[in-house]
Every structure is written in structure tokens, then in C-alpha cells.
Nucleic acid binder design. Structure first.
Length: 496
RNA sequence: GCCGCGUUCGUCUAGGGGUCUAGGACGCCGCCCUUUCACGGCGGUAGCACGGGUUCAAAUCCCGUACGCGGUACCA
């Protein structure tokens, strides 16, 4: 019997949850759920105090929740291997750092930032393009490998600042098996003596991540490709501790349409919302985002496209994750959004619309009317909030005319509209229905020997202010006789 | 520069030696439906980066090249 699957999403609270981070979380979650008894763990990697952002952790939690991703163990619902914030595990890392020094796998270094800069500069001048603190250079630096034992003790006792560095072996080939990429290998000579414990006493990502994954019994590390290059350091660490490393899986990056990693700046330039909270704020369908993101770098292998989080959970396997970076396609996201939007009942949409309208201080009509309006609008919008903008004429007399539509208001329009007006004026409220309204329009165009559009478009402009939109006759029926006549009169008055 | 990882239609992908004159989805274009705009239906456009091998046979395996991306911090 294999150990139960345990995966973690380990974001750094340095800002709002990025869309790429969300996908990493999603893949971890899907992987956990695709195994019976699998656990999805949230660990906050707040070891960089200079970049810490107060609201970030809350934003991460809220974003995951919005997507329907349930955290099995995390800061808010700890399991047995807590705490789940690295800042609260500081002592632990120190203990393991010391252990590494004792076993000869790490050492103290006292070099100042200036001295490190000087070293790099010196090396660069002598033709070394990527200076490293490695097996060669460490011999001429200030550390417990070069300094006499008693001086090291003296410095430590004096409370002098130090870091702990990993003693990377001079020549060694580090190999590991990546679940997505297969065989990967690095030469240790390309690695530097990575700082493990910083001078502020906090661990670096590398140490903390290894120690925590081990202590939290993580079985699979699923993370972005940007970590692939530092994985050999982690492998070295595992073996220094004598621990079995977890399975590794490095996900392809999400790319910007203009190339490169989808960074915050790039995304903004291209009009792509980059933070999950932006999707929440702009009323995207969470199921659509999830579905879209799942398919960005993964596919189930058949021709299916639409799957709920639950279904994805059953379909997901790591070996179907692609290797190459995936370009974010906003139009496809919108397509997904439309799919999920149309699935919802008019009643549900009405409730959601009320919530949105409430925030924007817009007053909406009663449920019956609202749901009928939604029914007419639903097939024409991409996002739920567009029901409000496209359907504004259902809720208020148009304040202005779409300049583009106005081109269809011709010289003969007033006459035709007037004639139509006088016909529908004779209808009772009960008779004011789509079929009747349409046949009366036909009467007018036939009598005048003109095409349908000659009257239809001006009428639409008068009633909705727009040149497009839901079925005009159904819309007029819903609007009611009084409103329609009022709008026609207003328009006749304004446009002549 | 060095190290690593990638590369199938514009984009996301299917494909894992013959069934590929390469399939699906988004987008785009056209037609139908609708005398609006959409939705829907039908059809179309367009791709195996390049060069060598291996093999009777390569999009699929191997090697190079090019290009892209990532990493190269007391950031994660």
C-alpha cells in the first residue's frame, strides 16, 4: 500500500494571487482529488520579510474558495504537521541548518554584501560571466571552511551576522525523474553554494521548502517550471539529510500573447486580468476560469471541452500535462464564460444581477420582468454584468442613441414610425404582444411598399436606443404599451 | 555568456513508427436560420521549426542547428 498522496500549494504572500499561481494550485488540487484520500495542503511561504504583503494571504484563501478549491490543511484549518506558515517554523529550519553543518554538508559564511559584490565583480573582470560562490571561490571567502575554528567560534559568540551555505560538491551529476519532463540532469559545478539560512535568521526558499515538504509528508511536488533549475539543489539537500525526495512535476509556464512569462505588467498592457481578484471583481464565472485554466497546459485526450471542477478531478492525470509553455487566450476564456453563463437559470442570474446592481446603485424591476428580460438577453452576452449594460433599456428609457444606429434613422423614418405608433396605440394592454406587434409592422411596410428594415431599425432606435439587441417584438411586449409609446413619442420629438 | 527545459494550424491541444491526404476547440471567413444583433447549424482557412540519420515506413525514435522560454540573489 502506497503512502496517501499529499500535495501542497506553497505561494509566497508577496501580492495578490496571480492567475499562474491559481493554475498551479488547481493542478495540485486536481491531482490530490484524483487519488482517493489525497490531500491538498496550503503552505504560506513568508520567509522574505521585505516583500511581505499583509492582505496577500487572505486574498489567496478567498481566491481559492471562489474557484471551489478546498484546502484540506492550511493555516486556517491545520492538520497534524503545522504550523502552515513558514515564519512560524523558523526554529525548525535553524535546527536543520545546524544539523547540516554538523554533518559537513553546510558551513557558516561571514561575507558581507559588499564583499560578495566585490568577489563577483573581480571574477567578472577576469572573464567569468557568471561568478558563483562555489567550491573554488569559497576558498578565498570568509567562512567556516577557511577561517580557523576558534575564530569562527569567536565570531558566532560575538553575535556577528552570518549565513549558512550549502556545500555543493565539486563535480557530481544530479539526476532526477520529472513526472512531466522525464529524465533531467544537472552538473553540480553549475550550482553555487546556495544560502540556506539568511542573516536575518530566516531560511531561504530552498531549505524551507525541502524541510517542510519532508516534515509535511508531501509525496508530489507540483510547481511551475521556474523551479526546475533549482531542483538539483533540493535534491542535494534531500540526500544530505538522508531523506527520500518527493516525486517532482514541473508545470509549463503560462505565456503572454506577445511572448514571455505572463507577468503582471505584460498582462496589463494586453488587457488580460492577471490577479484572481480581478476575475472576481469583474464577475467572471469561476467555473469558466477553472475550466479554461485546466485546459491551459493539459487536456483529457478526447474532444471534450466543458468540465466542472468535479469532472476535472476524475479526468486529471499528470502525464497528460504538456511540456511547452501555453499562451493565455482571453477570447477562449470568454467563450468558456458564455458556456457557463447560459447554463444558469434566469432566476439564478436575476439574483446575481440584483447583487451587482445593488453595488452600482441601479434599481431593477420585479423578478418576473427581470427574468423575462434575462431570457431575451442571455444568448447575447459574454459576462453576467453585461446583462445590465446591454439590457439597460429594459430598466430605463434610453438616455442617448447609439451613434452608429442613428445612421439608420432616415428621412422617411418619422412618417413610418408615426403610422406604426397610431396602429399599436389602438391595442389594449392585453393585445400588446409580440405576434400582434409584428403583424402590425408588416401592415405598415406593406402599405408603404418598403422593406422590413425601413421601419424595424428606426423603431428599434426609438425603443432601445441601440441598433442591435434582443428580438424587438418580444422586447416591446415586455416593456409594455405605455413605455413603448412614451419612447416613440420622445424619439419623434427629439429626432423629428 | 553559461546551465536547463521546450518547439504540431494565429492560439489551446489530439497524436506516442504504418489507420495522418494530421483530428478537435477558440479565433477568423463564408453560407443557412433570423428582414436587427446574437445563439444555433453547415462549410472553409490554416500546422508537424530546419537539417541529418535509424527504418521497408517518422509528426512520432536518435543527433545536430535555429528559435523560444526559464534559471543564473542573503526573491520566491
Amino acid at each position: 500500500m502506497e503512502a496517501p498522496v499529499r500535495v501542497r500549494f506553497a505561494p509566497s504572500p508577496t501580492g495578490f494571487l496571480h492567475i499562474g499561481g491559481l493554475r498551479t494550485a488547481l493542478y495540485n488540487y486536481l491531482f490530490a482529488r484524483s487519488h482517493t484520500g489525497g490531500k491538498f495542503i496550503l503552505r504560506i511561504e513568508d520567509t522574505d520579510q521585505s516583500r511581505y504583503v499583509e492582505e496577500a494571504e487572505d486574498d489567496i484563501l478567498r481566491s481559492l474558495e471562489w474557484c471551489g478549491i478546498v484546502v484540506d490543511e492550511g493555516p486556517d484549518n491545520p492538520g497534524e504537521v503545522g504550523p502552515y506558515r513558514q515564519s512560524e517554523r523558523k526554529e525548525l529550519y535553524n535546527k536543520y541548518g545546524k544539523e547540516l553543518i554538523e554533518s559537513g554538508h553546510a558551513y557558516y559564511a561571514f561575507d558581507t554584501t559588499e564583499e560578495l559584490d566585490q568577489m563577483r565583480e573581480r571574477l567578472q573582470k577576469s572573464g567569468n560571466p557568471s561568478p558563483k560562490y562555489d567550491a573554488i571561490t569559497r576558498q578565498s571567502m570568509k567562512n567556516s571552511l577557511t577561517l580557523p575554528q576558534d575564530e569562527v567560534t569567536k565570531r558566532l559568540e560575538a553575535g556577528e551576522e552570518y549565513v549558512i551555505r550549502l556545500k555543493v560538491p565539486r563535480r557530481e551529476t544530479i539526476r532526477f525523474e520529472d513526472l512531466i519532463r522525464g529524465h533531467v540532469s544537472f552538473e553540480s559545478k553549475g550550482l553555487d553554494d546556495q544560502v540556506l539560512i539568511k542573516s536575518d535568521g530566516m531560511p531561504t526558499y530552498h531549505l524551507a521548502n525541502v524541510v517542510d515538504d519532508y516534515l509535511m509528508k508531501i509525496t508530489h511536488v507540483i510547481r511551475g517550471e521556474e523551479w526546475l533549475s533549482s531542483t538539483p539543489k533540493h535534491i542535494l539537500l534531500y540526500s544530505a539529510f538522508g531523506w527520500e525526495p518527493p516525486q517532482m512535476a514541473h508545470l509549463p509556464l503560462i505565456m503572454s500573447p506577445t511572448g514571455g512569462k505572463l507577468s503582471k505588467r505584460k498582462a496589463e498592457e494586453e488587457g488580460i486580468p492577471v490577479n484572481t481578484k480581478d476575475y472576481i471583481k469583474h464577475h467572471y464565472e469561476p467555473e469558466a476560469l477553472v475550466n479554461f485554466l485546466a485546459y491551459l497546459g493539459w487536456s483529457p485526450g478526447d474532444d471534450s471541452e466543458i468540465h466542472s471542477l468535479n469532472e476535472l478531478t476524475r479526468l486529471f492525470t499528470l502525464d497528460r500535462v504538456s511540456k511547452g509553455g501555453a499562451v493565455f487566450n482571453h477570447k477562449k476564456l470568454m467563450w468558456y464564460n458564455e458556456q457557463y453563463l447560459r447554463e444558469q437559470s434566469n432566476k439564478v442570474l436575476a439574483n446575481r444581477l440584483r447583487e451587482i446592481a445593488g453595488k452600482e446603485k441601479i434599481t431593477l424591476p420585479d423578478d418576473d420582468y427581470l427574468e423575462k428580460a434575462i431570457e431575451l438577453l442571455k444568448e447575447r452576452v459574454s459576462k453576467v454584468d453585461e446583462l445590465l449594460s446591454m439590457g439597460s433599456f429594459f430598466f430605463d428609457d434610453p438616455k442617448e442613441y447609439d451613434p452608429n444606429a442613428l445612421k439608420k434613422w432616415k428621412e422617411d423614418s418619422p412618417v413610418l414610425v408615426k403610422e406604426y405608433r397610431s396602429k399599436i396605440d389602438k391595442l389594449s394592454d392585453e393585445e400588446f404582444e409580440a405576434v400582434k406587434l409584428k403583424s402590425l409592422l408588416e401592415e405598415v411596410i406593406n402599405a408603404n411598399g418598403v422593406g422590413f428594415g425601413k421601419l424595424m431599425m428606426p423603431l428599434r432606435i426609438a425603443v432601445t436606443g441601440q441598433g442591435f439587441g434582443p428580438d424587438l417584438f418580444a422586447s416591446m411586449e415586455l416593456l409594455g404599451k405605455e413605455t413603448v409609446l412614451r419612447r416613440i413619442d420622445n424619439t419623434l420629438h427629439e429626432l423629428g
